[in-house]
């Protein structure tokens, strides 16, 4: 886990001491990175030059350094950590097994083995969850 904003590393230090340690015992346990020029946010497509800040962008990067998922929100809405963890578990399952994971998949649920015979037959082995859109 790496967090990035346009604040300096000095501001990160004080934020950890003044506020984050009061929310989380010991403060956040990951490196807090500084992107004061916005150059890192720029290459990730999340830098807003008018506001001078990095937008709320989240990138899931696999052990080969390949981006497997991304999500970008404007500042007022926070992220959903449960969905991030679900996606991470799904990508790890795919990497380990070669299976593919249907919508909303969680560990322990049915994943699919792609094959010519399965085309058009997914309805026999997987159904949308009841009570969910």
């Amino acid at each position: 886990m790496l967090s990035v904003s346009t604040d300096s590393r000095f501001v990160h230090k004080i934020w950890q001491a003044e506020e984050l340690e009061r929310m989380i015992p010991g403060g956040v346990p990951f490196p807090m990175l500084s992107d004061q020029s916005g150059a890192i946010g720029q290459i990730y497509g999340v830098y807003d030059p008018a506001a001078g800040v990095d937008l709320r962008g989240r990138f899931l990067i696999d052990p080969d350094g390949v981006i497997q998922a991304m999500e970008v929100l404007t500042p007022p809405v926070g992220r959903n950590v449960e969905e991030l963890i679900r996606q991470l578990q799904a990508f790890q399952h795919v990497r380990a097994t070669g299976d593919v994971t249907p919508s909303g998949w969680r560990p322990g649920e049915t994943a699919l083995h792609p094959s010519p015979g399965l085309a058009g037959q997914v309805w026999q082995v997987w159904k949308p969850k009841q009570g969910k859109a």
Binding site: M1, L2, S3, V4, S5, T6, D7, V11, H12, W15, E19, D35, G41, Y44, V46, A51, V53, D54, L55, R56, G57, R58, F59, L60, I61, D62, P63, D64, G65, P75, P76, V77, G78, R79, L84, L88, F91, Q92
Partner: peptide
Amino acid sequence: RLSDYLGRWVVLCFYPGDFTFV
């Protein structure tokens, strides 16, 4: 350096600013 994390899963999270609200 990001490439120091090759071999591990990485979540890279940008956010608008320290001491803000969300």
